[in-house]
Nucleic acid binder design. Structure first.
Lengths: 268, 268
DNA sequence: CGGTTACTTGACCATTCTCAACGCCGGTGG
DNA sequence: CCACCGGCGTTGAGAATGGTCAAGTAACCG
């Protein structure tokens, strides 16, 4: 059984002093019903959010009125980080289901970098993980067909829900409307509908209302064209945490690519 | 005139001790001709890279053999960060033009978080900025037509090149092949070709070989459907750097969204 | 020069979109 | 309790954006 803290411990951090920080975050909880804005694009950036329970989507608006859902957040995710680099929020955060989350003020975040380097490093790695996820989604949308995209998306949801302990017997609750799925994948709701039925008719999944059961994970994975990345756990953290004072045994360590004779190496 | 350090100073950092760290990075330079791999997907993650000169692309491969270029890197960019969260590299880094870059070992990066919090914070914010860029690209690819995507992409390149001091008289060198542009935007090279000529015929841009001149920035911006985010400069940094010991005047500070009477607030 | 790579253009094709209609279900008010 | 309503899902028919295939041309490089 996992908790909503699984995203914070995935890189193997949380020293005792870090725990105190996290419990300070979770001291103030907020709840919202479904289909409410947590924060609109253009709003002032005063905090980020730690999602304890429920589904939240983060979306970007286009001038044409169309929207792109850039991330479906599940319990344990941190919300609103990208906007830290912007003058005003760039993404709209909306609840998909009833949700519980903890606001974390930007000033509290900054303290981390000065006083809790291990936790800061973990958040940094977690942000890199989100970048990988965005790269994956971009590759689905840019380079695969509707059925391939949908398969990849459903698998991704399945795996992330499993990590949060929300999958039982290969089945999970999928609260997204078909229009929302379309806005994630760059498809219309009509085409999502048709494509879903194809996936069902192939015997890969089963739908009962909004309950979704994966019948043939292998078949789904075959349809999904992406090469799923393997996330580093503690190793990702350890890679960064070389003990102080160790002398670099540089040599070719970062130069595997330079096996080509025409490559030049200058400086040093 | 800017330098390739503009991406490091954009959030207003670089204390004297940080400068020493950066100059250590740039002590070892590597050069590669165009069309070479810096690092292939699947390779061990030993370092990240600081791009001093030239264009580099980072791409994700699909099992179908198609690729998605997830980022076109320009001088001043940091390369390879997302893979820090992975067991083995998830993105292939390839030079588009002759390029000069500095490998930074992961261990050196980790030191930052313990000993150079200001610089670490800057890298953190820079990563958030890259997330925003990915979100934007995803919104182009997922929710706009070919000509809209192309306009947004050309504008983005223009603005980023301008920030690096590489635009003169609204014109810049565009070393990408049309196939590569297609792999960025999720289009075929054939369609990129046709779409480019439409943009030219509308009098928005001019092409002379691989030199591209923006004739009508306003027209381009109108075609591009995205609401361009405004990046926070030093303010982004200051938001995080609340002086220690200041008591939170919490109140409604993170609760604008809860104006709805049906919202509940628990805990505290 | 010869060969390769990139660009250009045309004709045809298909995936996906648009528009429209209908049914189902849950909620709400009479 | 029933009638109504809105949101969501489903299905069909036709249109369109962009893909595929193919051939020819221009630019570049040894």
């Amino acid at each position: 059984m996992r908790t909503s803290f699984h995203r914070l411990t995935e890189f193997g951090l949380l020293e005792p002093s870090d725990l105190a920080v996290v419990s300070k975050w979770t001291a103030r909880k907020r709840q919202l019903p479904r289909n409410r804005e947590i924060r609109r694009a253009g709003a002032e950036v005063k905090c980020v959010y730690f999602l304890l329970d429920g589904w939240v989507m983060s979306s970007v608006l286009l001038r044409s009125g169309r929207r792109q859902i850039v991330k479906v957040h599940l319990p344990g995710d941190m919300l609103g980080f990208p906007s830290l680099a912007l003058e005003t929020a760039g993404e709209t955060l909306e609840t998909i289901t009833d949700a519980t989350f903890c606001p974390i003020e930007t000033g509290d975040l900054g303290d981390l970098f000065r006083h809790h380097p291990a936790l800061a490093t973990g958040l940094f790695l977690s942000s890199q993980k989100e970048r990988v996820a965005l790269m994956q989604e971009l590759s689905w949308v840019g380079a695969t067909s509707a059925i391939e995209r949908l398969s990849a998306f459903l698998l991704d949801l399945h795996d992330r829900l499993a990590a949060a302990g929300l999958v039982e017997d290969q089945a999970f609750h999928l609260p997204l409307t078909q229009e929302q799925i379309g806005d994630v994948l760059g498809l219309t709701s009509v085409h999502v509908n048709r494509t879903l039925r194809v996936v069902v008719s192939k015997g890969l999944i089963e739908r009962r209302g909004r309950q979704l059961k994966v019948l043939d994970p292998g078949g789904l994975r075959q349809l999904a064209q992406n090469i799923a990345p393997t996330y580093a756990g503690k190793e990702g953290y350890l890679r960064l945490m070389r003990p102080d004072g160790v002398v670099r045994a540089t040599g070719q360590s970062c130069s595997e690519a330079s096996s080509n004779p025409s490559d030049l190496s200058i400086g040093g």
